[in-house]
Design a protein around this nucleic acid. Sequence first.
DNA 1: TATTGTTATACTCTATAACTATA
DNA 2: TATAGTTATAGAGTATAACAATA
Lengths: 155, 155
Amino acid sequence: MPPKTKLRDPAAEITFGALPDLIGYQLRLAQIAIFRDFAQTLGSYEISPGLFGALVIIEANPGLKQTELARATRLDRSTVVSLVDNLERRALVERRSAAGDRRSNALQLTPAGKALLKKLQRLVAEHEQRLAANLSAKEQLTLVKLLEKIFPEYR
Amino acid sequence: MPPKTKLRDPAAEITFGALPDLIGYQLRLAQIAIFRDFAQTLGSYEISPGLFGALVIIEANPGLKQTELARATRLDRSTVVSLVDNLERRALVERRSAAGDRRSNALQLTPAGKALLKKLQRLVAEHEQRLAANLSAKEQLTLVKLLEKIFPEYR
DNA sequence: TATTGTTATACTCTATAACTATA
DNA sequence: TATAGTTATAGAGTATAACAATA
C-alpha cells in the first residue's frame, strides 16, 4: 500500500509543530502583538514604531544628517527621504542647511515636534508597561539583555 | 535670550536616547537582524518566515481549512488566499476538496512540499544556532519563556 | 443568516537604480 | 571620484469591502 497522508481530526486543535521552540518564531509572534498594541495606543497620532524611533533619535542628536539617521534606523537613504518628508509635512521635523556642507541636511525637531514627542513618550511608556505586564522588573531587564545578544554584530 | 537648540558635535557618535531600554525597540532590532539572516540562509528557496511557518503548520495539521490557517498565522482570510496560491503555484501545497463541506479546502503538503520542508528545517535549525550563538542553552530557554509572556492573551 | 473562499483594490514599508549637486 | 540627497519605480506583505457558493 502506498503511504497515505493521515488527515487530522477536524475537531482537534491546530498544532504548531516545532515552531513554538524557535526563538525567531516567538519573537515574531511577540512583535505582531506589540505592533498592534503600539498602533492602538498611539492611534490618533499616526506614528509607527519606526517614526517614533526616528523622532527620538533626531531629538537626541539635533543637527544629524539624513545619512546618519539612515544608519541609525537601519534604513536605506532613499527610505529616509520619505520618512523625513512625512515628518516635515507634519511640521514635526525641519531640514536645516548644514554648516560646512551644502549637500547635507541638518535635521531638527520643531517645537511642535518636541511637544508631540513628549506626549508620545508618555504613551509609549504605558504601552511598554502593558506588554511587560506579566514580567517582573528583573525579567524585563533580563529580556532586554538577552535580546541584545542576538546578532550583536549587526547593531 | 530665546532657547536655542544646541546642535550636536558632528564628530560625535549617534545616540539613541531612551530607545535601548525599551523591550519593543530591542525586539524590533533583533527581528530585523533575524529576518536578514533568515532570508540569506534560505536564499535560493524564496521562503519567508511566514511561508515557512505556514508549511510547518500545514504539515502538522494535514487537511486543515484556509480559515484555520488564517487564525493560526494571525493573517486575514484574504491574505491566506495569496499565500496558498503562492505555495500551490510552486506545487508545495494542494487544495483538496474537504470531506463534508464543499465550501472549504483541505490543505495538504505535496510530496515535493514535504521534501522541501525537510531541507528547510535543517537550514532553519542552522539559522537558529547562529542567532543564538551568544546565548547559552539555558539563556535560550529563558528567552523563549520570557517572549511567551508578552501579550499572552493575543496568542 | 452565517461561513468559506475569492477578487479587486489600496496602503505601508522597504529597496534598487539612476540622477543632481556638491565635495 | 565619492558622497548626500532625491526621484521613479517596484516588490513584499498586509488589510478592507464586496461577492458567489454553500451551509
